[in-house]
Amino acid sequence: MTSETYANLLHFAGGLLLLCTVGVVWRHQLGASVRLLAVQGAALAAIPLISGIYHEKAHLLAIAPVVLVLRAAVLPYLISRMVPPTARPPGGWTASAAPATPAAQADAGAPDGPTATRPGPAADVLAGSREPVPLISTSVTLLLSAALTVLAYALCRPIIALDPTADTRTAPAALAVIFIGLLALTTRRQAVSQVVGFLTLDNGIVALAFLLTSGVPLVVELGASLDLLLVVLVVAALTNRMRAAFGGTDIGELQELKE
């Protein structure tokens, strides 16, 4: 692999990571978010793989499958189990690029009369498989994502200056993923969306770790992965409890404890 190919591949992986992340904040259908998360995990796993091949580092090559299994399969699977099936067949990109009408209905809150009987986005919201009206409109979210990406590039200047390689040049993308994950956490109301946002954030951090230092020491990497797994399990259990206690998973409703 030439260094140019290496850089291209790395940038591609980083770009894919970022793209999936933007998708996560764009989409309101939780099933789609989870699938994007899986793709994101795969893109993340590609980084140590590419890097391991190029730098000929065995431990990176060894860790890449672990990352792939955990982040592209196990975690998305666990999360997808938290999402109740949608009222309509899962339609990927096309189905969720739905006409504006149902969205408008969702905007208007609980639909009344005949529309209530018709399964739709509002019912999905109630069931917890679709993000309700976002706290910040989608376009503003996307603009903010763009701003955060710029911020990430600005923040990474000292890192690139210290060690100008293809790896560090990809770091801004990872940092932007982190920021956008935080943004998703801040604006998403469904429990699952928050978890997805959190995992996005975490993926970004891991990506950054691979890009900057070829991963953290093994014991830390294993410990961090275990922690992550446990957190997701805890959150999954909590979501179940929440559904039992509140009849829904809208985090925005959790405002009993204040001051």
């Binding site: 911020l151 923040l155 109301r189 959790l254 405002q255 204040k258 001051e259």
Partner: peptide
Amino acid sequence: RRAHQGSIHAYLAYGALGLVVALLVAM
């Protein structure tokens, strides 16, 4: 008290805002 009305989104937003400000200042 008005700033602590129990919304986790607001809470996360404080943190995120704090982070961005801190990073900008730190640069």
